[in-house]
């Protein structure tokens, strides 16, 4: 009696596994067939669309040729957070002086590689940059530069010095002095200590 039961159990399990193999193989074959069909449809579509002719060489206009990347020094605090050091970065700088100044100051605000610290408060934006005939650069920052500053004469001095050093390093001939503005207005000071009413240049 028990032998018969065993045989029945064995036969039913063998039949079940055979059924799974058959169903599995059928499903794989259907999926493969579907894939091949879709591939062929896609291929036929591609071949139907005519390919665009290769672009013609652009007429030689120097202002439209993207300039080669140039090295720029951004002045950031080193690991000690006590000393400002030049940190090299590569930038495709604009040929126009004012736009180039704007690019560099924006890079100073935004780029802080690991192990360096920025002296400009987070969230600060350069609204505009302008250079007048007296070689004075006007840098108009958003109010984050003043409102977000940690304060203290030392920190204030480092922030201003970082901006001035970055400007004078990139434009040694073109810019002689820097006037800092906040939201388009002249400001007396950044954090209550340094006098920003007049254009500044660095001690030589």
């Amino acid at each position: 009696m028990s032998d018969n039961q065993e045989t029945v159990k064995h036969n039913s399990s063998a039949g079940f596994s055979r059924l799974i193999v058959i169903w599995g193989t059928t499903l794989i074959l259907i999926a493969f067939g579907l894939g091949v069909t879709l591939y062929l449809i896609e291929r036929s579509k591609q071949s139907a669309v005519p390919t665009a002719p290769p672009p013609l060489p652009i007429a030689a206009n120097p202002s439209d040729i993207p300039p080669p990347p140039q090295e720029v020094n951004l002045f950031l605090l080193d690991t000690t957070a006590l000393t400002l050091v030049p940190v090299k970065t590569e930038r495709r700088l604009h040929a126009e002086l004012t736009k180039r100044l704007s690019q560099i100051i924006t890079a100073l605000i935004q780029e802080t590689p690991p192990n360096f610290r920025n002296t400009i408060p987070r969230g600060t934006v350069l609204n505009e940059a302008y250079i007048d005939s007296q070689q004075t650069a006007y840098l108009d920052f958003s109010n984050h530069l003043t409102d977000g500053h940690i304060g203290g004469t030392t920190a204030e001095l480092l922030t201003i010095t970082a901006i001035l050093k970055t400007v004078f390093d990139a434009f040694p001939e073109e810019i002689k002095q820097v006037q800092i503005l906040i939201d388009g207005e002249e400001v007396r000071t950044l954090a209550g200590h340094l006098n920003l009413l007049q254009p500044l240049h660095l001690f030589q």
Binding site: L77, L82, G151, T153, A155, I160, L164, N195, L200
Partner: peptide, 26 residues
Amino acid sequence: CNASFSPHEKGIKIYLNNPKGQLRFP
């Protein structure tokens, strides 16, 4: 009172007003 980006910077400092100081008025 002073503040610095470095937590190690310390000490008393005296500042004098000199328009021709470290950051000069041109």
